[in-house]
């Protein structure tokens, strides 16, 4: 009974937040609503029984997407976008029927799939069966790295592509993007950073390590690390540069290139492509991916080709 009430409230919150994000008056509020929507979505994943997704949604779906949206909003405002807060909605008489129709369709499909009397997924059963052989405790990390590694490898490539494409956009054109706001040193921020940054790194490493046997993994850890980087950028401890230094470039590419090189290794001794040669390789790839994810997300946030430490920091 209480559980039902809880789920009902979560669903209600999700729906009303979604409506607010899309149709609220001000865009800025829309972003806040979208972030809170993501946080509520994380609660929903927790209730559905998928803590890994809860974590990913909170960190990546809500946290970093929200941060990226806010910084994009800030750039729009800096470029003199003054009609965005009250952008009028397009008038379309078809919008409501189409929306209701597609919602109904999805509902019917979803219920049909939920109620269909399928056997349990064979792929999932194989995962649970073979996972202990590899000494991994987290089935999802197992699927991502051991059983379906190519998906993960290409997913890192997607992130890299997004970064490269976004960089290409910023690299052409005028120099207004390089104009930066000044960051006055405030005592509170400094104190906060001194506590938060080491903690974030600690949490990221913990999540990474935890990923092999319980909830966590490279993506969640990378997102936390990226959050620390975002903090450093925001507080002006790290400032943006137009071209990346060797360390940053290495960071961006570590995940993809480590995965490819380790994935190609088995071909040398006659095993299948992307067969991971042992636990050490899982740790190595996960660490490299974490670094790459963090680096890519920070650069996307800072709209920067590279980063350098500010002298004050």
């Amino acid at each position: 009974m209480m559980a039902l009430l809880l789920d009902g409230l979560i669903v209600l919150a999700l729906v009303s937040l979604a409506v607010q994000a899309i149709s609220g008056r001000s865009l800025f509020r829309g972003i806040i609503h979208f972030v809170v929507f993501g946080l509520t979505m994380a609660l929903a994943w927790a209730r559905i029984g998928a803590p890994d997704l809860a974590m990913a949604e909170a960190a990546i779906g809500a946290g970093l997407t929200g941060a990226l949206m806010m910084v994009a909003y800030r750039r729009l405002v800096a470029q003199g976008d003054n009609h965005s807060p009250r952008a009028p909605a397009q008038k379309s008489r078809l919008a409501i029927p189409i929306a209701v129709g597609s919602g109904l369709l999805v509902g019917v499909i979803g219920l049909g799939a939920l109620l269909a009397d399928n056997p349990p997924g064979e792929a999932g059963l194989i995962v649970l069966e073979t996972l202990p052989e590899y000494g991994l405790g987290n089935a999802i990390t197992g699927v991502l790295l051991l059983f379906r590694g190519l998906d993960t490898l290409l997913e890192i490539a997607v992130l890299l592509t997004a970064l490269l494409a976004a960089r290409a956009l910023a690299g052409t054109g005028d120099s207004s993007a390089t104009a930066r706001t000044q960051h006055p040193e405030t005592p509170l921020v400094g104190a906060l950073l001194a506590v938060v940054i080491p903690l974030t790194i600690l949490v990221a490493v913990h999540l990474l390590r935890a990923g092999t046997h319980e909830t966590g993994g490279a993506f969640q850890a990378g997102a936390v690390l990226a959050a620390a980087g975002v903090l450093l950028v925001l507080s002006g401890r790290v400032s943006r540069t137009d071209t990346a230094g060797p360390l940053v470039r290495l960071g961006i590419l570590a995940g993809l290139s480590a995965f490819i090189l380790i994935g190609l290794m088995p071909l040398l001794y006659g095993e299948a492509l992307l067969t991971l040669p042992g636990m050490w390789s899982i740790y190595l790839i996960e660490t490299a991916m974490m670094v790459s994810i963090a680096a890519a997300l920070i650069l996307l946030f800072a709209d920067a080709g590279g980063l350098k430490r500010d002298r004050r920091g």
Binding site: L39, A54, A59, A62, V189, V196, T200, A210, E214
Partner: peptide
């Protein structure tokens, strides 16, 4: 773990 992650993100979002 999820809760831990939330704590970390909260401070950053606020900044």
């Amino acid at each position: 773990h999820v809760a831990l992650l939330f704590v970390m993100l909260a401070s950053i979002l606020s900044l």
